[in-house]
Computed example of a mutant assay.
Amino acid sequence: MMILGWKKRYSEILKEFNYDEKKDRESALLLDAILEKSDVDTKIINLVKGKTVLVIGSGPSLQKAIPKLKNHKKVVKIAADSSVKVLVENEIIPDIVVTDLDGDEIILKKIAKTKTIFVVHAHGDNIEKIEFAKQFKNCIGTTQSIPFNKIQNFGGFTDGDRGVFLANYFGAKKIILVGMDFGKRIGKFSKTKKIDRKIKLQKLKRGELLLEWLSTITKSELFTTSKAIKGFKKISYKDLDIIIT
């Protein structure tokens, strides 16, 4: 099952970034072969449905958000894998990590021993990394192409916006973005090299457009503590305390 309208967005992504759909499929097939059937979907439903969920990225505003995140340890947290290292270093363990396996492997292995759920995304550029998914006990697989067997498609493009689409799919009541700055600055926690900066910004822009689209069809209430995004209510950290409680 795919979110209605995703096929069109996926076609646009393939064209814009010159991606190969066959490679996306190949990566997804490898991931499907690795994953075992599980009840992880049920665990995500129990965590997310009807709840307030924080979706955490590694943008420039993340550093300022850390103290607030530490004050709300019981709130469900979905983290893009580039934000995981700084979260763990501050004793914040995400409930769900959305990853295409390009994050800090040592940190990912470390929290694989916790109750953290991993949502591993397969695409044409990470075929050689898919085997790493064997490290994760609580794990589901996703694709940006056609879902099949154990591989699902909730929508989204980058780890951060896929986290938002995930929260939407599993029925979060409120979704609040933290450290997700879709601007022209790349956060210091991102491992982006200077030569990759242009494509990274292009991906962030595409992610932002997808979230704007999602805001027109979701039933979840949408907020952001980061850069203003069309369809998301911009809030302060003081507002965050009120919304969560």
Rank of each mutant, 00 (worst) to 15 (best):
M1F: 10
M1T: 13
I3S: 04
L4I: 15
L4Y: 15
W6V: 11
R9I: 14
S11W: 06
E12R: 07
K15V: 14
E16I: 14
F17Q: 10
D20T: 15
E21T: 09
K23L: 15
D24P: 10
L31D: 01
D32R: 10
A33F: 12
E36K: 15
V40C: 02
K43S: 14
I44R: 06
I44G: 02
L47A: 00
K49A: 12
V53P: 15
V53C: 08
L54D: 00
G57Q: 13
Q63T: 11
K68V: 11
K68L: 12
K68N: 12
K70Q: 15
H72I: 09
K73I: 14
K73W: 12
V75G: 04
V75Q: 03
I78Q: 04
D81T: 00
S83H: 12
K85A: 00
L87Q: 00
L87I: 04
D95F: 06
V98F: 04
T99V: 06
T99N: 03
T99W: 00
D104G: 00
D104H: 03
L108S: 10
I117A: 04
I117R: 03
I117P: 04
V120M: 01
H123A: 10
D125Y: 05
I127F: 02
E128Y: 14
K134E: 05
F136R: 06
F136H: 03
N138K: 13
N138P: 15
C139V: 15
G141Q: 02
T142A: 06
T142C: 12
T143I: 06
Q144P: 07
S145C: 13
I146D: 14
N149M: 10
N149R: 06
K150H: 09
Q152A: 11
G156V: 10
T158G: 05
D161Q: 03
F165S: 08
L166G: 08
A172V: 05
K173L: 13
K174H: 13
K174F: 09
D181A: 05
F182K: 07
K184C: 11
R185H: 14
F189C: 01
D196Y: 14
R197E: 08
R197I: 00
I199A: 11
K203C: 01
K203W: 02
L204R: 05
G207A: 10
E208Y: 05
L209G: 12
L209A: 08
E212L: 03
T216P: 06
I217P: 06
L222R: 03
T224E: 03
T224A: 04
S226Y: 09
A228Q: 14
F232W: 09
K233N: 13
K238R: 14
L240F: 09
